[in-house]
Design a protein around this nucleic acid. Structure first.
Lengths: 108, 108
DNA sequence: TTTTTTTGTTCGTTATATAGTACCATCAAT
DNA sequence: ATTGATGGTACTATATAACGAACAAAAAAA
């Protein structure tokens, strides 16, 4: 009896071709616990774990917490997650990223 | 030493003119615990509590969890402009950009 | 003022989130 | 076939989220 929260974590993890151990390392958790989150019906992680898992999976915490069982994060959700990371970059790195966009937009 | 999470909860609660007990009732928690969330420096509520508190306060969980300091408006405008361009990229190029973020975030 | 009610604070206890270890299964390489 | 990785499952121990009840401040009523 997996929870929608667990289904989303597993689906996204597999989509990124990560093992439980990969995710455990990326999020500073034990893989045993991550397995429980994905497969046990009472999944109730702490804010701290939630934030780290969402970051490692490149999705928003909102997406993971949402009760509706859509396992495929719609593109907009992924974009928002990216944007939150982007905003934290220093300006030099932001410029680097923008250079890529300039280049790509010139291609077509 | 209140956490940003605690500050947001308290600010919003007072804005709605709710007492700790009001919020405790609305969210099915003890007011003692809610006080800890607002005033203790290590605030780490569970997903369950998070969802209920956000609902009672009429905000998103994302808002409560977001720890990033508010950015100055001038920069945010530029970021939004970038984001509009980013969203138009195909997924392969989006992945490429994200790889850079992965790398940079690992550096520090 | 004095009393009563409301709101906030503290703390010992309990429930449970999470780590840690060890156990199975699969598969690749020897 | 056997060994050694690798990924998943299960179980026990421990740290801590969360409660409940009592105490303190403040506010409001009297």
């Amino acid at each position: 009896m997996p929870s929608p929260l667990g289904d989303k974590i597993r689906a996204r993890r597999i989509q990124l071709e990560m093992s439980l151990e990969d995710l455990a390392i990326a999020t500073g958790s034990s893989k045993g616990y991550l397995w429980e989150l994905e497969n046990r019906d009472k999944a109730n992680p702490s804010a701290d774990k939630l934030i780290k898992i969402a970051a490692a999976l490149g999705v928003t915490t909102e997406f993971i917490l949402d009760e509706s069982p859509e396992v495929e994060p719609e593109a907009s959700v992924l974009d928002e997650a990216f944007f939150r990371r982007y905003k934290k970059l220093d300006s030099k790195r932001k410029d680097k990223v923008q250079k890529f966009l300039d280049m790509w937009e010139d291609e077509d």
